[in-house]
């Protein structure tokens, strides 16, 4: 990596040209960059990948804006991947996260890209991980990933980012909301934004109680619950990291420097404890499994023929066979 001459052309291109990077991101999004992703993969792994998630309207974009500014003040380069939902009816999307990030304009150390979920329900898009890999290989120190406004089950960010920040705001729910399964459990750092709004004390109390409860019930580790998250079956993760609860006001940047300090502490913890390796292993094995499943399915359909699959579906609809037997029969026909 020290020898520039050995870099693949795509890596040189995306490090030197923002236009080349932007175009590569488009090809990744359209599933047309397999060979480029293969070429750049060895040159990633240096950026700190930070996920920011939370309910709509909690102030994620504004917070990301301030975080990016604070990282720039430290001299770090920042890329932002902002995900918004695709309309399930038209397939279109309005991506509005840039509205809150206008302060970052004119800084060549910042690159912002908006993307739509394109039908994926996990809070990010299916191609988000590959987009992150491109931004990582392009040499950014920090990759901030802002998920769609997420609630209780949009937890895929936990397998795409290293440090996950869950943003809450006063007045969004009672203490029962806080102990439901979901994004609270994937938080490495909890942020109560809009900390100047009324009700902040009771929100803090509910979150603290929820975290304490988590410790007692789980006995050993609050991250242990991550095993419920399909893509991140974390095994053997220890409990040395206590999820901190911070307060910010993203309209004026209050609390952001404390947040950056905690993020740096979390990164150090991940690396020193070996948890990062564990998480990466779990996430990569889940990803390979998922990709294998897609490939195998495609190959199977190719072998038996789409028409035969359709015919089998019709038989199930006529209740001649049940869905499980249908799948078994198709598998047998493919061999």
């Amino acid at each position: 990596m020290s020898d520039v001459a050995t870099l693949p052309p795509i890596v040189t291109a995306i490090r030197e040209s923002r236009r080349a990077l932007a175009r590569l991101l488009t090809r990744i999004e359209n599933h047309a960059a397999a060979s480029e992703l293969a070429a750049l993969y060895p040159f990633g792994g240096k950026a700190h990948l930070i996920g920011v998630t939370g309910a709509p309207g909690t102030g994620k974009s504004s917070l990301v804006n301030w975080m990016a500014k604070a990282y720039r003040a430290e001299g770090k380069t920042v890329s932002i991947l902002a995900v918004d939902p695709t309309s399930p009816f038209s397939g279109g999307a309005v991506l509005g996260d840039r509205i809150r990030m206008r302060d970052l304009h004119g800084d060549s150390g910042v690159f912002i890209r908006s993307m739509a979920t394109r039908g994926n329900l996990g809070g990010i898009a299916r191609t988000t991980k590959d987009m992150i890999r491109a931004l990582d290989a392009a040499g950014f120190d920090i990759v901030l990933i802002e998920t769609v406004g997420a609630g209780q089950s949009e937890v895929e960010i936990a397998s795409a980012a290293q440090t996950v920040i869950v943003v809450e705001a006063p007045g969004l729910g009672d203490d029962v909301q806080a102990i439901k399964a979901g994004i609270l459990e994937i938080a490495d750092i909890l942020v109560v934004n809009k900390a100047d709004n009324p009700g902040v004390e009771s929100t803090l109390r509910a979150l603290r109680a929820a975290l304490d409860l988590g410790h007692r019930v789980e006995r050993v580790m609050h991250h242990g619950k991550l095993m419920d998250v399909p893509a991140v079956p974390v095994i053997g993760e220890d409990s040395a990291w206590q999820t901190p609860i911070l307060q910010t006001i993203a309209t004026n940047g209050t609390g952001v420097s404390e947040l950056l300090t905690k993020i740096a502490e979390h990164r150090a913890y991940l690396q020193e404890s070996g948890v990062q390796r564990l998480r990466e292993r779990a996430s990569i094995s889940a990803e390979i499994e998922e990709r294998l499943r897609d490939l195998l399915l495609a190959r199977l359909i190719e072998r038996v023929g789409a028409a035969h699959v359709q015919a089998t579906i019709e038989r199930v609809l006529r209740r001649e066979i049940d869905p499980n037997s249908a799948a078994q029969a198709l598998l047998a026909d493919s061999g």
Binding site: S90, G92, A93, L95
Partner: peptide
């Protein structure tokens, strides 16, 4: 909104943008 409903992805940047932005 209309472009979204036509299946396009719209990046909305808001008011008072300079040509450079």
């Amino acid at each position: 909104r209309a472009l979204r409903d036509a299946g396009m992805e719209v990046i909305y940047t808001g008011l008072r943008q300079t040509p450079e932005m």
